[in-house]
Amino acid sequence: MSIQHFRVALIPFFAAFCLPVFAHPETLVKVKDAEDQLGARVGYIELDLNSGKILESFRPEERFPMMSTFKVLLCGAVLSRVDAGQEQLGRRIHYSQNDLVEYSPVTEKHLTDGMTVRELCSAAITMSDNTAANLLLTTIGGPKELTAFLHNMGDHVTRLDRWEPELNEAIPNDERDTTMPAAMATTLRKLLTGELLTLASRQQLIDWMEADKVAGPLLRSALPAGWFIADKSGAGERGSRGIIAALGPDGKPSRIVVIYTTGSQATMDERNRQIAEIGASLIKHW
Rank of each mutant, 00 (worst) to 15 (best):
H5S: 07
F6K: 11
R7H: 13
V8F: 14
F14K: 02
A15R: 01
A15K: 04
A16Y: 08
F17I: 13
F17D: 03
V21G: 08
F22D: 07
T27S: 07
T27M: 06
T27H: 06
D33S: 14
A34V: 11
G39K: 15
G39M: 10
V42C: 08
I45G: 03
I45S: 06
S51V: 06
G52V: 04
K53A: 14
E61F: 10
P65Q: 03
M66R: 00
M66L: 12
S68C: 01
L73N: 05
L74S: 03
L74R: 00
C75Q: 01
V78M: 09
D83N: 05
Q88S: 13
R92S: 10
R92H: 10
Y95C: 03
V101F: 07
V101R: 08
Y103M: 06
V106R: 07
V106I: 14
E108S: 12
L111S: 08
M115K: 03
V117Y: 03
S122T: 12
D129A: 00
N130E: 01
L135D: 01
G141I: 05
K144L: 13
K144E: 15
E145P: 09
H151N: 15
N152A: 13
G154Y: 05
G154I: 02
D161Y: 04
E164S: 00
E166C: 11
L167R: 02
L167H: 03
E169I: 10
D177W: 01
T178W: 01
T178D: 02
T186M: 15
E195W: 06
L197M: 09
L197T: 05
R202G: 07
Q204W: 06
E210C: 12
E210T: 10
V214Q: 07
S221L: 10
A222V: 14
I229G: 02
G234P: 00
G234A: 10
E237K: 13
R238Q: 12
R238Y: 13
S240G: 12
S240W: 01
S240K: 01
R241K: 06
I244A: 07
A246L: 15
P253N: 09
S254R: 12
S254W: 09
Y260Q: 02
T261H: 06
T262K: 08
S264M: 05
E270G: 08
N272V: 04
R273T: 12
I278Y: 01
I278E: 00
G279W: 03
A280D: 14
K284V: 10
H285M: 09
